[in-house]
Design a protein around this nucleic acid. Structure first.
Lengths: 153, 153
DNA sequence: ATTATAGGTCAATGTTATTGACCTATAAAA
DNA sequence: TTTTATAGGTCAATAACATTGACCTATAAT
């Protein structure tokens, strides 16, 4: 790989780091006003996307241990942002759902990020949205488990 | 904002989170084999890009306190990955530089990321690289300080 | 001489995360 | 029906990573 190409790729590495850091800055500022943190936002986000998600599914999504998830989850329930009720189909399973208060906070936090992405994609055109997503999907793809014949599961 | 548009933007939020997490996974695995961590990679990366960078410049780049930077920096020097020498122009300033051993480790870590990005951009075409970078630059731009007349500094 | 800058260090604190152990409740399988 | 597995909660110990605050040396600039 020639020097110039390496410099271009180094720029992408820097942009990835700086962009991610910037992207979570404002939500983190809002979270801290409520005495909660990044992981709380992630929980709120994924519970909002998939109401009645189980603790187990959330663990698999976030790739953390249940001990790491437990404290923030309990806090969110205690603060009235979320409920945790036994599932009718299996009383061992807890179904997590946002309350109206939780939905409002999740909206406030994620709207900052959705609004910024929307603004950029409107500025740059809808092709940019598809391409940006495709690049990100390709990055994630490396990490996905494969079956023995090489097909993705 | 209609429901469908919100769903599309939610997908971008998920992709950003999952892609960033995947992107640092393999370097983190290598780092842990050496008993060091994410911040060490960041230090190695920025010192590699800008040899003779001062501690102060590195603090500004990484946006951490000097107390947070200090331990990892000292470890990297003690482990023989980096040197810290007084600058000729101002003996208070320490110039950080990678040793050959440090350059090799930085290359090993960042090549995983550069290689992945290169592979994706080759697959998707050079337009995708320019567009992806432009989106990321726009995300970073929100956070940049502005002068009174609105021009970026 | 005084003040400011660059950097190093110690202490206290707190979040995020880990591994390991152990508990209850419930469901599924033998 | 007894046994085993699953879902979840909790406690403890540990550790990275980060903060604020305080204080120190050395050097440069005023």
């Amino acid at each position: 790989m020639d020097k110039n190409r390496e410099d271009q790729l180094n720029e992408t590495l820097m942009l990835f780091y700086f962009a991610y850091r910037t992207f979570i800055k404002e939500p983190d500022r809002i979270l801290s006003q409520h005495g909660i943190h990044r992981l709380h936002h992630r929980i709120l986000f994924f519970v909002a996307r998939q109401p009645k998600i189980s603790v187990h599914e959330l663990l698999d999504t976030l790739e953390v241990t249940k001990q790491a998830l437990h404290a923030p989850t309990r806090q969110l329930v205690e603060m009235g942002y979320m409920t945790s009720e036994p599932a009718s189909y299996d009383r061992r399973v807890r179904e997590l759902k946002l309350t109206e208060k939780g939905e409002a906070l999740e909206r406030q936090l994620s709207d900052v990020q959705r609004g910024k992405m929307n603004e950029i994609f409107e500025l740059m055109g809808s092709d940019s949205e598809e391409i940006w997503k495709e690049v990100m999907k390709n990055i994630i793809a490396v990490d996905e488990p494969k079956t023995e014949d090489g097909s993705t599961t």
